[in-house]
Amino acid sequence: MHPAPSVILFTTLSGLGFGFLAFLGAGCLHPAGLTAFLLWGLGYALAIGGLLFSTFHLGNPQRAWRAFTQWRTSWLSREGWASVLTLLLLAPVALSDWLGLGWSGLPGVIGAAMCFVTIFTTSMIYAQLKTIPRWNHWVTPVLFLCFAGTGGAILAGKVALAVAACLVLAAVMVAGWQIGDRRFADVGATMESATGLGAIGKVRVFERGHTAGNYLLREMIFVVGRKHAARLRVIALVLTAVVPALMLLLAGPHPVAIALAALCHLAGAMAQRWLFFAEAEHVVGLYYGQR
């Protein structure tokens, strides 16, 4: 799959944003006044910024409001609803922290839970697709939830929790890659089943239907960039989990250490997300003899 910057920024930024908002909503931090304004502002900026980036992926973004209509069947629509509801639910909590109104509590906890529901719906946009076996597995939602939890814990400066989350995230990432590498074969789609010609013999592409590129090749048969997959996996692992955990362990919850650890984690998340798309093989590639 084509690793479009818009979807990479969308999933990483809004993932981190909702993860952080969950910690703020659950009352893990007790910010007040300007600090509260800035911290909540950061959470909202990340979450909303990510969502705005997702609209750059659209051919007709002016009709984006229509995406709220099909929540009964579509995970993308559910994601829209969940994100807006969560941001609305947490707004009074943020206001209360900032102005010291004392409204947090239950609405904050519900909002925090909704943050993870939002992340889950985002992950299901990808995990629901049977055509992309690597994504079509429970490990995808687990991975997205772990990313949000880890990013949130790092930004919240909860050292012990963040270090534990980094360890879990690293394990889930490795498990995700191992499971993902087997998925295409497990699903069993082949050039023979795609063309129905397997009963005759082995199928090979003789000629494509067109001499130049097309939407399918650009969007779903992205084969460049997998050369460095193994190296990128190590980079993602080090940047998302190892370095942030060490930084927080050595420096403690110092604001500078938190900022650096969060930036490092975010950079790693983007590397991971780039791979998430670049390594994902769509079954339509079988018609082109490419995966």
Partner: peptide
């Protein structure tokens, strides 16, 4: 009503859908 998100093309195994540029 199409916003051009491309998700339907991702969901199709047969490459039957193309987003018009």
């Amino acid at each position: 009503a199409c916003i051009g998100c491309g998700l339907c093309a991702w969901a199709c195994p047969y490459g039957a859908r193309e987003l018009d540029a």
